[in-house]
Amino acid sequence: MIVHQLSVFVENKSGTLLRVLDLFKDAGIQLIATTISDTVEYGIYRIICSEPAKAYDVLREAGISASMSEVFAITLDNHPGRAADAVRALAEEGICISYLYTFLLGGKGIMVFRTDDAERTKEIIRCKQLASLDDAALLALA
């Protein structure tokens, strides 16, 4: 149900992102999904990759500020309205989504998100029988 996501605090400066990617390349770590948002002050680069624990160590050793967090990952059938169904399940219970991103992997739609209440989100995923993924399941699709 839980996937480990790395967050890297990157300075808004040319070359900082490349530094992270080069470190991953050298360590043989494969990216599965990444997202970055643009704000004036700072950027948070969120990464799902093949070996999160190793990736975390690689970044720390290079002196790069990173944190590891647990996010939810569910698969969605490729039909209109599936994302709405999943989000509705959370909204009906009054759960707020902090951030969310989606991507296709092995022909399957994947939705990754974090909420303000991890325990209740777990319950909802169980009750509504949403198809969730863990690190290994996600990597198997890649």
Binding site: F9, Y42, I44, S65, A66
Partner: peptide, 11 residues
């Protein structure tokens, strides 16, 4: 920052 946590609203 002393430590970094992935929390935009807090930052």
């Amino acid at each position: 920052l002393k430590d970094f946590s992935d929390d935009y609203p807090r930052l």
